[in-house]
Design a protein around this nucleic acid. Structure first.
Lengths: 213, 213
DNA sequence: AAATAAATTAAACAGTTGTTGAAATAATTT
DNA sequence: AAATTATTTCAACAACTGTTTAATTTATTT
């Protein structure tokens, strides 16, 4: 087994770590290559422009994530057949892989999610990058929710998804604001505690738009 | 009435607009002063360092906002006396001023909220800047919620507040992702539509943690 | 109107930015 | 072993970074 990392991965790891803290414009190519222990020219040799490094960082983990999440969704749909999958299981399938990777996947994953949180809340990039990497998956989840809440209006459910997305990304942004605010009662790093509460919170939110007709 | 803006405000307006789009590091002082139609040296003459410009941008509107929101909270508490204020009114008091200003307050307010959304989801700044400007107010709201949900556990309520914060900031980040995702059914700019749904969604989320004891 | 203070301007500082080119080394193929 | 391709290094490019200085103009006070 080869544990030595390729130059490409060294650069991506360093870029990921630094982008998470200071954003795209807050990090220079020299800072990235210094962190990676590599010559600055290698960044453009392997990736091209700075923006291409960023795109490569995004893509690397998105594929893994989407595969896992679709798998979990399919599983819970299959288990429930011929009934529609229970709402709380759909929400769990949507969030579980994210929080689990962020929690136990190592520093790289943590950085990656911090970047996602920033992108998701960015006025320009949010509508482009998130759409590009995560919309196909989001559509599958919303379809599953519609199947289990057949009377509800599509517009309501899209907004509910929006709230879910916001609550989720703030959660793995990694800010410790919740720690300060709660006087140490809650810790942002404790993602098990979040997940325990996020799923019932979001489920109840969706159910407020259940249509009895 | 004097409609000519001071140099300070010209700089703050330009900085606000640019920071919203490209973040702190993505904007140079020369870009700000060019946008403001003003000499670059005036930025440091009036504000000092670049970071001080950013802080001034943050502070300018936070004060207005906090005054309005506390006023709304106090009103709904007074109306309900001697009972505790209804949960959905507390949530509305928390969100109304934000969405209303973002909706009808002009471009400056929109930019301001886009910055807030980014800061709130930033791993380092979120725990510092948001705490500094908005935690005193957040504590008042959580106290009001505790009063109306006396049996609930504090830890649960802090997490619920966290989810509210995430859903809310994504909403006024201004990303058009929801438009793409819904195939034009929803529009991020339509903040009235959001508010109509945000309050019942969040209220139901909180109520999932109501303790019947 | 003279004196003082505040605001604005233009020029310059040393350091950093993303990116490229040519030369040198390493790995792979013939 | 020779030839070819892939990778790495070092140096350099013009453009831009935040900030400061001193000179000049405008506004306020005496």
């Amino acid at each position: 087994m080869d544990k030595t990392k390729s130059t490409k991965d060294l650069i991506l790891d360093a870029a990921e770590k630094l982008f998470a803290i200071r954003g795209f414009y807050g990090v220079s190519i020299r800072q990235i290559t210094t962190e990676a222990g590599v010559d600055p020219a290698l960044a453009s040799y392997h990736f091209g422009k700075k923006q291409d490094i960023f795109n490569a960082v995004m893509l690397r983990r998105a594929e893994i994530l989407n595969r896992e999440r679709i798998q979990m969704l399919d599983d819970c749909i299959r288990r429930a057949k011929p009934n529609p999958a229970p709402l709380h299981e759909i929400i769990d399938a949507f969030t579980h892989a994210l929080l689990n990777r962020s929690n136990k996947g190592g520093e790289g994953w943590k950085s990656y999610f911090a970047i996602i949180a920033q992108i998701n809340n960015h006025p320009e990039l949010g509508g482009v990058i998130m759409t590009q990497y995560f919309d196909p998956l989001a559509k599958k989840f919303i379809a599953a929710i519609q199947a289990t809440m057949p009377g509800s209006q599509a517009e309501d459910l899209y907004w509910c998804y929006h709230f879910l997305s916001g609550a989720l990304t703030l959660t793995f942004s990694g800010t410790e604001r919740i720690s300060n605010l709660s006087g140490g009662l809650c810790h942002a790093k404790n993602l098990d505690a979040v997940h325990e509460r996020l799923v019932p919170f979001i489920t109840a939110g969706f159910e407020a738009f259940k249509n009895p007709s």
